[in-house]
Simulated scan of single mutants.
Amino acid sequence: MRVEIWSDITCPWCYIGKARFEQGLAAFAHREEVEIVHRSFELDPNAPKEAVPTLEMLARKFGRTLEEARAMQEHVAGTARAEGLEYRTEGRVNGSTFDIHRMLHFAAAHGRRDALLDLAYRANFAEERSVFDDDTLVALAVEAGLDEAAARAVLADGEAYAAEVRADEREAAELGANAVPFFVLDRRYGISGGQPAEVFTQALEQAWQGRQVLAPAAPEGEVCEPDGTCAVPQS
């Protein structure tokens, strides 16, 4: 069985959803027979190459003060930490993720995509490293087991793996995915948002049996929208 996951590296619910999905998969009896394929999705295709502070971006987008934006991030951080994930609310930046997605496709060609994705999520949400800096991105690629010179060559050629990124995004649109994370099981069943682990386990079991997947416990899980807006749990 194949599970495809559309996500973006700046989406906190993709970071949380990946962890929850892996917990759900771990409880699935046929987990060794599940192929995971990560797909590209840019939340903001028009984001500038030069990254800007995340809190400033959120304050501007929502018309809030920096303190209000910080409080929004703390809500999400609390959810992430409850899943055992580190999450910084200060010092993070936000920008175009197109080059990151190109690098992830390069990693996929060498069987290292999941390793690079985990490192990129960690760098973006848990560490004081910007995934929007070319040197940092190359360093992450090397940590994931990729060749440094080859990784730099990919970044230097703006069209390298660009077609693959755009193809993923076209497929997302064709499937009706307008927010991430978005999970597709065997191209038959779709799950939107960072659902609880048990919802993923149930969906895997029912997809395996070939029956219609039950509605999630909540109509929709928390997602990030194409304009970069991410749902924030209310206190």
Score class of each variant (00 low, 15 high):
2 R>Y: 02
7 S>M: 13
7 S>R: 12
8 D>I: 05
9 I>M: 12
12 P>C: 08
14 C>E: 01
16 I>Y: 00
19 A>L: 04
20 R>Q: 00
22 E>N: 09
25 L>C: 05
26 A>L: 10
27 A>S: 14
30 H>D: 14
31 R>C: 10
32 E>C: 05
33 E>H: 13
37 V>L: 13
37 V>M: 06
39 R>G: 01
40 S>C: 10
40 S>M: 08
41 F>W: 06
41 F>H: 02
41 F>Y: 15
41 F>L: 06
42 E>D: 08
43 L>D: 06
43 L>K: 02
48 P>T: 13
48 P>V: 08
50 E>Q: 15
51 A>M: 09
53 P>T: 07
54 T>M: 14
61 K>T: 10
61 K>D: 10
64 R>V: 11
68 E>M: 03
68 E>H: 03
69 A>W: 00
69 A>R: 01
69 A>G: 06
73 Q>N: 10
75 H>Q: 15
78 G>Y: 02
82 A>K: 14
82 A>R: 14
83 E>N: 09
85 L>T: 11
86 E>S: 15
87 Y>T: 11
87 Y>I: 10
87 Y>C: 10
90 E>Y: 02
96 S>W: 02
97 T>Q: 01
101 H>F: 07
101 H>V: 07
102 R>Q: 10
102 R>T: 09
105 H>W: 12
110 H>D: 12
110 H>I: 07
112 R>I: 03
115 A>Q: 14
116 L>C: 05
117 L>T: 11
118 D>E: 15
118 D>N: 13
119 L>T: 07
120 A>N: 07
120 A>R: 00
122 R>L: 10
125 F>V: 05
126 A>M: 06
128 E>N: 14
130 S>Q: 09
132 F>W: 03
133 D>I: 09
134 D>L: 08
137 L>K: 07
141 A>W: 00
143 E>L: 11
144 A>Q: 04
144 A>E: 03
145 G>C: 11
145 G>D: 09
146 L>D: 02
147 D>E: 13
147 D>A: 11
149 A>P: 01
150 A>G: 04
151 A>N: 07
153 A>L: 07
155 L>F: 05
156 A>H: 06
156 A>V: 08
157 D>C: 05
157 D>A: 13
159 E>D: 15
163 A>R: 12
164 E>Q: 15
165 V>F: 02
167 A>P: 07
169 E>Q: 15
171 E>L: 14
172 A>W: 01
173 A>M: 09
174 E>L: 04
174 E>H: 00
176 G>I: 05
180 V>P: 04
181 P>E: 01
181 P>Y: 00
182 F>R: 00
183 F>S: 02
188 R>F: 02
188 R>T: 10
188 R>H: 12
189 Y>I: 08
189 Y>A: 11
189 Y>Q: 09
193 G>T: 06
193 G>A: 07
195 Q>A: 07
197 A>D: 08
200 F>D: 02
201 T>E: 12
206 Q>D: 08
208 W>E: 12
208 W>T: 08
209 Q>M: 13
211 R>D: 09
213 V>Y: 00
214 L>D: 13
215 A>K: 12
215 A>M: 11
217 A>Q: 13
217 A>K: 11
217 A>P: 10
218 A>F: 06
219 P>T: 04
221 G>H: 05
225 E>Q: 14
228 G>E: 09
231 A>M: 14
232 V>N: 00
233 P>L: 01
233 P>D: 01
233 P>Q: 01
234 Q>F: 08
